[in-house]
């Protein structure tokens, strides 16, 4: 099996409902702690609100889901990790974070140009009994380590197991869909193999409307965005005038 899993997110379709954030947290047993804030919380997928900077009826707003970009080249977090707790999986292209190896030094958080990494400050906790509602396929999140999106790796494991039971070497693409993709009520998030030229997602990634955030850094992120609106595409580079309008969502 060799794939380069990635996404194309159609920004024009995103309504900022937050279903992807909720589905991500529920799937990955991310706790909601009363003391967590926007600075200290754990949101492996975060939807940010952006605007074109105008006022009145000409003002436009859009929502951009931000998560680990799964950089393919010179992956910044991999380069700085002293523990080899981060690596790019050769077979899938997924940037993996191994919580058991992580020291919590947070170099990777500093290195990540997308601010897509979060430090887990607290032991996971739920109201009594609520642990029965946790996903049995995923461990609870450890305290003291850095967390990020792993493209719902547990689902990839399940798909592999299913394929193995059926005596197949390759997984059925329908069996491996990350939770955010499944949850999107407007089908704005498209997931697939960017390495397969025939995959619809790969074709979409090469459309004129597609763009990547901070592409000039040369880290080859595997998360693409797409928009018909020029002001949204202009946000891809931070020096554009519109980018200064970006608000934390």
């Amino acid at each position: 099996m060799s794939a380069r899993y990635g996404m194309v997110i159609d920004v024009d379709r995103c309504t900022g409902c937050g279903a992807c954030m909720m589905a991500c947290a529920a799937e990955n047993n991310v706790p909601a702690l009363p003391q967590a804030t926007a600075r200290t919380g754990l949101t492996p997928l975060l939807v940010r609100k952006v605007s074109n900077g105008n006022n009145g009826e000409t003002r436009r707003e859009a929502f951009i889901p931000i998560m680990c970009m799964h950089c393919e080249h010179d992956t910044p977090c991999v380069k700085v990790c002293p523990q080899q707790a981060v690596e790019v999986d050769e077979a899938t292209g997924i940037v993996m974070q191994m919580a058991q190896r992580c020291l919590g030094c947070r170099y990777c958080m500093t290195a990540c140009p997308y601010h897509a990494r979060y430090f887990n400050w607290w032991d996971p906790a739920w109201p009594p009994g609520m642990e029965k509602s946790l996903n049995p396929g995923v461990a609870v999140r450890m305290r003291g380590v850095v967390e990020k999106c792993n493209l719902c790796h547990a689902r990839l494991h399940s798909a592999k197991e299913k394929a193995a039971v059926a005596g197949k070497r390759e997984i059925d693409p329908a069996d491996y869909v990350p939770a955010c993709v499944e949850a999107c009520s407007t089908n704005a998030i498209h997931f697939g193999d960017l390495g397969d030229a025939n995959d619809p997602v790969s074709k979409e990634a090469h459309s004129p409307q597609a763009f990547r955030l901070l592409a000039r850094l040369g880290t080859e992120p595997k998360l693409y965005y797409k928009s018909n609106e020029a002001w949204v595409r202009a946000l891809a580079e931070p020096n554009s005038p519109q980018a200064s309008e970006v608000q934390r969502g």
């Binding site: 937050g18 991310v30 909601a32 919380g41 609520m130 969502g249």
Partner: peptide, 15 residues
């Protein structure tokens, strides 16, 4: 609200 809804309005400013 489900506790996880705090991801939308407490751990982010989305809502």
């Amino acid at each position: 609200m489900p506790p996880l809804a705090s991801k939308l309005y407490q751990e982010s400013g989305l809502r």
